[in-house]
C-alpha cells in the first residue's frame, strides 16, 4: 500500500512563545522551528510499515512557504521516499489544508493517510478529521496502535474514558497520539541521503484545490499571569494554609 503523511512546520516544543508587543500575533522571528512532534510520530509509523513490507512507498507532504522544505527533508531523513511541498502562505486555515491534502491524496492514490492529532502551535486538532470528511472515508483519531489486516486497519484510540478499538477499510485516515511509537533519530548518512531524495513543489491551483478562509485573527494576548506563591516549610503548614487561607479543604 501507499502511505501519505502530512507534516507541519511548527515552533520547537521547548520554546515558550511570546506575544508581539502590538498584540497582532505571536513573535516567531528567530524562533527555533521543528517538525510537529505528532507528525514525527506519523512519519515513524509510515516508515515502520515500509520496513515491515506492508507499505511500498511513503510520501510526505507539507503545505506552506519554502521554509517547510526543511521539515520535509527531516521526514525524508527519517525514511520517507519522496516529498511534496504545496506552496502556500504559512498558517493557512485547516479547511484549506484539508482540501489541498484531499487533492494530493487523490493524485497519489494513497491507501493510508497519516497526520498528527494536533499541531502544537495552533492546537486545533481538526485537519485529519476534515480530510476524512471531504473524502468520505473512515477515520481513527488519537491512535496508539495501528495493525494492518489485509485491506483494513485495526486501530486503538486514546479516548477520554480509556481506549477504543475500531476497524477501518482502506483508504483510511489515521491521526497519531503520543504513545503510537517512539520516533527514531535521523542518522548522519540518512540526512545526507535525504538531500538527494525527490522533492516536488506544487501549487493549490495546479492541484485544483479551492481555499476556504472565514476565520479572522483579531488579536493575540498573553495569558493571565499567576501571582507568585509561597514556599511552605512543612506538610503541617501546607495543610493549615489549605484549610485556613485558601479554604479549599475542609
Amino acid at each position: 500500500m501507499k502511505v501519505l503523511v502530512a507534516v507541519k512546520r511548527v515552533i520547537d516544543y521547548n520554546v515558550k512563545v511570546r506575544v508581539k508587543s502590538d498584540r497582532s500575533d505571536v513573535d516567531l522571528a528567530n524562533v527555533k522551528m521543528a517538525l510537529n512532534p505528532f507528525c514525527e510520530i506519523a512519519v515513524e509509523e509510515a516508515v515502520r510499515l515500509k520496513e515491515a513490507g506492508t507499505a511500498e512507498e511513503v510520501v510526505v507532504v507539507s503545505i506552506g512557504s519554502k521554509s517547510c522544505q526543511e521539515q520535509l527533508r527531516t521526514a525524508l531523513a527519517l525514511g520517507a521516499d519522496r516529498a511534496i511541498q504545496v506552496d502556500a502562505q504559512d498558517q493557512l486555515d485547516s479547511l484549506s489544508v484539508a482540501r489541498i491534502l484531499q487533492k494530493v491524496a487523490e493524485e497519489e492514490s494513497a491507501d493510508l493517510i497519516l497526520l498528527g492529532k494536533q499541531a502544537i502551535d495552533s492546537d486545533n486538532n481538526q485537519t485529519g478529521q476534515m480530510l476524512a470528511a471531504l473524502m468520505d472515508r473512515p477515520q481513527a483519531t488519537f491512535a496508539s496502535e495501528v495493525v494492518v489486516e489485509g485491506d483494513a486497519l485495526k486501530v486503538t484510540r486514546e479516548i477520554d474514558g480509556g481506549l477504543q478499538t475500531l476497524s477501518l477499510k482502506l483508504p483510511a485516515i489515521v491521526t497519531t497520539d503520543l504513545r503510537l511509537n517512539e520516533p527514531r533519530y535521523a542518522s548522519l548518512p540518512n540526512i545526507m541521503k535525504a538531500k538527494r531524495k525527490p522533492l516536488d513543489v506544487k501549487t493549490p491551483d495546479e492541484l485544483g484545490a479551492q481555499l476556504a478562509g472565514g476565520v479572522e485573527l483579531l488579536s493575540v494576548e498573553p495569558p493571565a499571569e499567576r501571582q507568585a506563591g509561597i514556599k511552605v516549610g512543612s506538610v503541617e503548614e501546607l495543610v493549615d494554609k489549605l484549610r485556613n487561607e485558601a479554604k479549599v479543604v475542609a
Binding site: A98, Q126, M130, A212
Partner: peptide
C-alpha cells in the same frame, strides 16, 4: 472539547464547508 467532540466536530465543519473554532 472532549475526545468525542474533537473527533466529530471537524467532520461536521468540513461537510458544511466552514472552518472550525477549536476549544
Amino acid at each position: 472539547g472532549t475526545t468525542t467532540g474533537k473527533n466529530l466536530a471537524p467532520r461536521v465543519a468540513a461537510l458544511l464547508g466552514v472552518n472550525q473554532l477549536s476549544d
